[in-house]
Amino acid sequence: MNLDLHAWTAAVYLAAALAATLAVALPAPRANRWAVGILVVGAAVHALAFLQLHRQEPPPPLTGLPFVVSLAAWMAVLFFLGAARFARLAALAVLVAPAAFLGAFATSLAAPAAASLAARTSPAWSHAHVLLASGGLALLGVAGGAGLLYVVHHGRIKAKRGLGGLPLPPLEALDRVNVVALSVGFLLLSLGVLTGVMWVRATQGGFWTSDPHASATLVAWAIYAVLLVARFGAGQGARRSALSAVAGFAVLLFAVVGVGLLT
């Protein structure tokens, strides 16, 4: 793993995080434009880091936690930048940029891990699983972030206090990004679980494993499934959906990162 480029990526994301924090704390909404611009640069440097990684001989394992976190952070940034082109969502950078920084920074600190036997014996399923699950983690992370901002902003407008004090995105934009990120993120997560099952089958012969990562991921998947049914089937309100997205992401983060760190 090329640590230098990931360190550069982390530095750029940190600059974006500082600009986004200043934008909300001062408040200085113009700083959000800077944050978005810096994130664009960060995403480009991040892509170069992956390219350099890909060209290493032998290539490092893509199933390692540092790589998954880094890939999810990059995908989250890309999704955010895409969403910010269509709605007034620049202030969401206050959550996306620090998360991206943490992802890239953790990767830059991690030592290269050896590929597991399972990954070496079934590279196609393992790569598909990592790519899809990382995408799901990224989008559901953005959904959780947007949900958190929605709950805060909704509370401020309802309580009628200090309007405009925090330059947050409009509720409608936050809800829209929440819905899109949840829908696409859930699809990617489902495909990630499916490819994970196929990977287990290819390497261990069964369809399931007692791995805590698999169990926690299944719990998170179930939370999102209930959430989406409640939202689209039962007409649940945006605020409750936002709260559920925050809770769902907390469980998913535990399943992917927490379990990985604990085991």
Binding site: A87, I157, E172, A173
Partner: peptide, 21 residues
Amino acid sequence: AERPVSVARVAAELATEIFDH
């Protein structure tokens, strides 16, 4: 000049805090 000080403008700004456009 950042924050509106008339009732009409406050109402309009609130609308933009709720709706994207």
